[in-house]
Design a protein around this nucleic acid. Structure first.
Lengths: 210, 210
DNA sequence: TAGATTGTTAATCGATTAACAATC
DNA sequence: TAGATTGTTAATCGATTAACAATC
């Protein structure tokens, strides 16, 4: 919809704005200025105004921002005002952890099914979500209009599986495997590399001492 | 040890270098130039050289970098050449997923125990790691020299628990709770906010179309 | 209207890339 | 020595912050 390219740094911050605005709503706050919000979030008010103005003038001079309006606008920007169908590849602990997390569904991410190669898991359910054999992937993806696949399998099989998923019509991979996926440029990949996160933590601990 | 401040962007990239170097080692590659590595990793050779030179001259003109030497140097920088004792707070799926991930231990992160409030879980073990009641936290942390705590509990109890952990001597929190922790500045926090990651994915999917 | 606060331009800061002399 | 490639300085690019006129 927008023509000018929004910077990656801005996108990265949007979900955090969304989270804070949600909390403000729960607390019954109706309006907030960029200055108040900046104190809460520990960022500059300037950055908040700059970020939001990438998408349009959501505020009002002399008043600030209407919390619930802004909340909904950010939801639209993030595309979480629409439903997304999601499957989980790999029904191990991590896959099950994701399946158990009900908040995703509240944000429009419908977990349609889980898939695994382990015959002992097939047919079991996690919070009502069934585990299917990977042989049924193609049909399932097409029948259920699956756009997103969470990939929680060992890195050795990740790339091959990702390619398969894409060929079946998946548009986005939420990649938990400890490897980079090389996929066509029209496929979206969001990486969650836990081991890298832990190493960054290690760096900070090791180089603390001040 | 170093005096000049290393930029956050550089630190963020280090674990990825480490991963690629590890793979090169496994493939029996002994030396690599910044140019070859840049092609593999899809970054500029300039960036690689700049990044590494924050920490010292690891390469050699006309030769490139010795893979295993560089691998070990980055391990030292990241502090993963030393052992870190870690506990997991919250023995749900996510906590168990972390406990099951053996690679962490290969990198020196020893998972000493898990803790939960649910009496039904107490005494159970995950891959030999025992689940203890939270009442034993203080003693356990002191007796086992625990530096790092992975926090996989609901956001409502996260801040309070984090403060407790810090008061017991924990120096770093690996935070999976969907909230920001406000802790003393000498405590290290590394956030893994899965719901924010999924929203970023949603943004990318929704604004794709090119 | 006066006060408050946005939207937006300009200034600053930091990070990335390019270029090349140093040197193995 | 000649060729290759680093280490490092300089140039560019992008992101953040400051400032203030516009306006509710």
């Amino acid at each position: 919809m927008d023509n000018k390219q929004i910077s990656k740094a801005v996108i990265k911050r949007l979900p955090r704005y969304y989270r804070y605005l949600g909390e403000l709503m729960q607390d019954g706050v109706e309006r907030i200025s960029s200055n108040e919000l900046s104190e809460k979030m520990k960022v500059t008010a300037s950055q908040i105004r700059q970020d939001l103005n990438n998408f349009g003038g959501f505020g009002q001079q002399g008043y600030g921002y209407n919390v619930s309006f802004l909340y909904n606008e950010i939801a639209k920007i993030l595309g979480i005002d629409k439903q997304h169908n999601l499957i989980i590849i790999g029904a191990g602990n991590l896959g099950q952890a994701i399946a158990n997390y009900t908040n995703f569904e509240r944000r429009g991410f419908m977990i349609k099914g889980m898939f695994d190669v382990n015959p002992r898991l097939i047919g079991m359910t996690v919070r009502g979500i069934e585990i299917y054999p990977v042989e049924q992937l193609e049909r399932f993806i097409k029948e259920n209009d699956v756009q997103i696949a969470a990939l929680t399998i060992p890195k050795e099989r990740a790339e091959e599986m990702a390619e398969k998923l894409v060929s079946y019509g998946v548009k986005a991979i939420w990649n938990f495997a400890h490897t980079d996926l090389n996929l066509p440029s029209d496929v979206v990949v969001e990486n969650v590399h836990l081991s890298e996160s832990l190493m960054r933590l290690s760096y900070k601990v090791s180089n603390m001492k001040k």
